[in-house]
Structures are given as structure tokens and as C-alpha cells.
Design a protein around this nucleic acid. Structure first.
Length: 269
DNA sequence: ATCCGAACCTGACGGC
DNA sequence: TGCCGTCAGGTTCGGA
């Protein structure tokens, strides 16, 4: 799925089309995503979109009454259609807008979710989330305090939503490379300096990815239909066997906790 | 408390 | 051409 930069790109692409518009109705063709699409969403009519925001990898549409919370799972996508087009196999949801545009949600694997909320503050999915990676609350002191006595690998920790949100597999690999830390290092062994480097690296990688419109792999298109170009900036992810940009040693790939880790065994310790 | 693997689901791709 | 195994951007849940 889209990671944080992808969601941010979708948000920015969607913004001009959807803000201030009224959702005339919603067509749900396949309600069984990760959880069933809420009845409140299926029955929406004439609700105005007041704002669109992001929290972690959730996209949140604030309506004049209630909120739609969208998660893209692994393969979710949004596209904007200027007129109706026949839905294809995995086109599960359409938002019909008052300006004539249609926001279409496509999700082959259906790991995504469309949830309804009346009150974000009490939402069970959002309420336990850790700090945003690009906020000041995510700093090395916070990270260090969460690494104490943690034997798990540092990569696992930075992908843990309670410690920091929005860091998925691609950007976890990229950040650890930039910080010169092995993905497999036991989290508690990080020094203060390494924690600083890692926090800075996460912020830098995400900033640059947002700047470039996210990373395009198989499934992701920006909401305007154009591919993002951070893919060409990746330092380790997907570069197995290619030379490290820093030292020239070959980038390695290892399966760890059901996820591919890419790293330079020379640069990262 | 902490950590790990399984599970959810479909499609693309490489090897034989 | 086709079948089979493997892999893919995420997250929650249950059990050890």
C-alpha cells in the first residue's frame, strides 16, 4: 500500500476536487474490505466535505456531520473521474460529487478500509496511535525512551504504530540505511547519537518522498493518475545485488518477520 | 509485557 | 501454454 508519503500525495491531489463539494451519494459495489463498509457510509447523501486531513496512513474526510476514515491497505487506490466510467472488477466504491467528479476507490486485495466515525477523538483505531513522524513530538528523546529494554529489531520498532506512525517497509529500509544502522540490531543497543541519526533520517526520507509524490511500485498511482517518482531515488529498497551508493558493496536482501529487508552489510551496523 | 507468526486477499512474475 | 510457488506498499489478532 501507499505509505505516508503516498497518502499525503493522494490528499494533495484530491483536495481541489473535493473540498467544499457535496457528496451526493455513495455507490458501494463490494462492502467487504478489511471490515465491512459502515452503513452510515453506504447511506450517505448530501453531506458536505469540509476538510480532508491525514493521520498516520489514514485519510480523513470531515463532513458537515461525521467523518469518513479511509485506509488503503496494501493495494488501495483513489482516482478522480471527470465523468462516469463503467467500474472494473476491483472498483469497490464511488463517491459522487456535486461538481460532477467521481472519486473511485480500487482495491484488489481488499486490505483497505472505509470507516465511519462521529468523533475522531474516541475512535478506537486512531486513539492509540503514536506521534506523527514529521512532528516535533517525534524526536530522539521519545525514540530512546521507547527503546529501553526492547530486544526486538530496530526495524520492527520503527514500523510500530505506537512508537511512530506512517513508516512502512520501504521507508523503514531507506531510513535505516541513511542512519547506517542494521535493520536487525536489537533496539536497546542504539546509542543516543544513533537514535538522533535515525529520527533525522526518517524525517528526511519521508520529506523527500512527499516532495517527489511518493514511490511507485506495482499498485500505486497518485490520485490524478500520474505515477510518483520517488522510486528512482530509493537507496536500498528493491536494489538487491546492486552496488551501494556509498561504498559499492552489493545491497543484500533478507527476509525478516515476513518482510524483505534491504541493506548494505558494510555501511550499516 | 513482549514478541512472533498467521491471517485477511488478489495479481504478477519467474521457473519448469 | 500452463501450473505452481513466491512475492507484494499493512495491520490486527491470538498464542507462546
Amino acid at each position: 500500500m501507499p505509505e505516508l508519503p503516498e497518502i499525503e500525495t493522494i490528499l494533495r491531489g484530491l483536495y481541489p476536487y473535493i473540498i467544499g463539494q457535496t457528496i451526493l451519494n455513495v455507490e458501494v459495489r463490494h462492502r467487504y474490505l478489511r471490515w465491512p463498509v459502515d452503513d452510515n457510509i453506504i447511506s450517505i447523501s448530501n453531506k458536505r466535505v469540509l476538510s480532508i486531513t491525514r493521520r498516520a496512513k489514514y485519510l480523513i474526510l470531515s463532513l458537515n456531520y461525521g467523518y469518513i476514515i479511509i485506509h488503503f491497505g496494501m493495494s488501495g487506490r483513489l482516482v478522480i473521474l471527470s465523468q462516469h466510467q463503467p467500474p472494473e472488477k476491483h472498483d469497490h466504491i464511488d463517491l459522487i460529487l456535486s461538481n460532477g467528479y467521481i472519486v473511485r476507490y480500487t482495491d484488489p486485495r481488499r486490505f483497505g478500509a472505509w470507516l465511519w466515525s462521529y468523533d475522531l477523538a474516541t475512535n478506537y483505531l486512531l486513539s492509540h496511535l503514536g506521534p506523527e513522524p514529521l512532528s516535533d513530538e517525534f524526536n530522539y528523546r521519545w525514540l530512546l525512551s521507547n527503546l529501553v529494554n526492547k530486544r526486538a529489531a530496530i526495524k520492527t520498532l520503527i514500523m510500530n504504530n505506537k512508537i511512530v506512525v506512517g513508516v512502512g517497509n520501504i521507508y523503514a529500509n531507506e531510513s535505516l540505511f541513511l542512519a547506517k544502522i542494521s535493520p536487525f540490531r536489537s533496539a536497546s543497543t542504539l546509542s543516543k547519537q544513533e537514535a538522533k541519526y535515525l529520527v533525522d533520517s526518517i524525517k528526511l526520507v519521508l520529506d523527500r518522498a512527499i516532495e517527489h509524490g511518493g514511490t511507485t511500485l506495482r499498485d500505486f498511482l497518485q490520485s490524478n493518475g500520474q505515477p510518483g517518482c520517488f522510486f528512482h531515488k530509493l537507496l536500498v529498497y528493491g536494489r538487491t545485488g546492486a552496488p551501494c551508493f556509498i561504498c559499492g558493496m552489493l545491497i543484500q536482501k533478507a527476509k525478516y518477520r515476513q518482510r524483505s529487508s534491504y541493506y548494505c552489510s558494510n555501511c550499516q551496523n
